[in-house]
Simulated scan of single mutants.
Amino acid sequence: MSENHIRQALRLHFLYAETYSFPKEWSFQESMTPYSMIRYIVKGAAQFVIDETIYHLEENDIIYIPQGSTLCCDALTDEFSFMSIRFTASLPIPGSEGRPEMLGMDSKVKCTDPQIKQYFQSIINEKNANNRGKQYTLRGYLELIVGYIISASDASLAKPDKPKNMKLDNKNDNRVEIVLAHMLNHYKENITIEEMSRMVNLSSASLRRLFKRHTGKSPSDFLIELKMVVAAKRILETDERISDIAYEVGIKDPNYFSRIFKKYYRVTPVSYRQLARE
């Protein structure tokens, strides 16, 4: 099957999008990404390490992080912000497993079209819309962005970075994707493994195994990490009390919230806010 036929058959499944801002001290410890991500650097600079390859990112750079990659990040400027889109990709074609090498994209491209930045912003604005056509709109913007990255990769004459293949979920099993989407849209709730299992008609043990195989994390660990990411954004961008932010992400005990937050960010929530504003 030709590259064009495979690209035509590719299905992108939008999960979540948001804008994130961090201080210079921000550091994201190495972790495996359970979905693909595309990030647009809005302000500042940072160093990303994807599968042991180092990328220096500045304003208007776009970075593609394939599903299943290991990722760690460090901010290099006093303020660093980016727009991030999370998604999965699949090919609904029998025998297409093992063919993602035909969909290679450069990991990093410089965005020279201001409309692409607007597509990122439109996705973030649209994700909370309450209309029946929302998923089609979100997927449309996502496909425009992916199309731009592929075109920019094809047009690049000098390629210092090894192109990254778009890793696909070709197991024809969207149960993990359903659970992920539910978590991303209901992170405020303390969803139990039993509830998630019923959503996809699996036993709790089977869902844990399937989720771990696809994401590298247990459902509970993934949900807690998601709560911490949302909470960190609120801590940086608002003056809300830490206890209120903890409650907003579904953690009623502020002391427990502080312990978990420090585990992920290496400082307390109060220190995290102070460091960002000094």
Rank of each mutant, 00 (worst) to 15 (best):
M166W: 07
L103W: 07
I93L: 12
V179S: 11
A129P: 07
I150V: 14
I149C: 06
N130P: 00
N185R: 08
I150S: 15
L57G: 09
N131C: 08
D154S: 10
K164V: 07
I50W: 02
E58A: 03
S84M: 03
Q115N: 04
G133E: 14
T137E: 12
Y119V: 02
F87N: 08
G95A: 06
K159Y: 05
G133Q: 12
Q67I: 03
D113I: 01
D106P: 07
F48N: 10
Y119C: 07
L91A: 06
A158Y: 04
K127M: 05
A45T: 07
I93D: 10
D74V: 03
V49N: 13
C73M: 06
N172I: 00
V179K: 08
E97S: 12
Q67K: 09
D78I: 00
K127S: 13
Q121V: 03
S156G: 05
N174H: 08
F80W: 10
K167M: 13
Y187R: 09
V176L: 01
P163F: 07
S107P: 03
F48I: 04
M102A: 13
D74F: 01
L91C: 04
I54S: 11
S122G: 09
L184F: 03
D113Y: 02
S81I: 08
D161E: 12
G147V: 00
M105T: 15
K117L: 05
N128S: 13
Y136H: 11
S156T: 09
K159A: 12
Q118C: 05
K110Y: 10
T70W: 01
G104M: 03
T70Q: 06
G140P: 01
S90D: 10
E177I: 00
Q67Y: 13
Y136I: 03
F87S: 06
P66R: 06
N172H: 13
P94F: 01
Q135D: 15
Q121M: 04
L168M: 04
G98T: 14
A75N: 08
N165T: 12
F80D: 14
I124N: 14
A152T: 14
I124L: 06
L184S: 12
L138H: 14
I85D: 13
R139V: 11
G68F: 01
F48W: 02
R86Y: 02
A46D: 11
R139G: 15
E58V: 00
F80K: 06
Y55M: 06
S84Y: 00
T88H: 08
G140H: 06
I145K: 08
L144G: 11
Y148H: 13
R175H: 08
F48E: 10
K171M: 03
S122V: 00
F80V: 04
P92L: 01
E177W: 00
E126H: 12
P66G: 12
N172F: 05
V49W: 01
S122K: 06
A181R: 06
F82I: 02
N172E: 14
S151D: 15
P92V: 04
E79N: 09
P100L: 02
G140Y: 02
T53E: 11
C73Y: 08
I50K: 05
D74M: 05
M166I: 15
L138P: 10
K110V: 07
H182M: 04
L91V: 05
Y136L: 03
E97K: 07
I65A: 04
D161T: 09
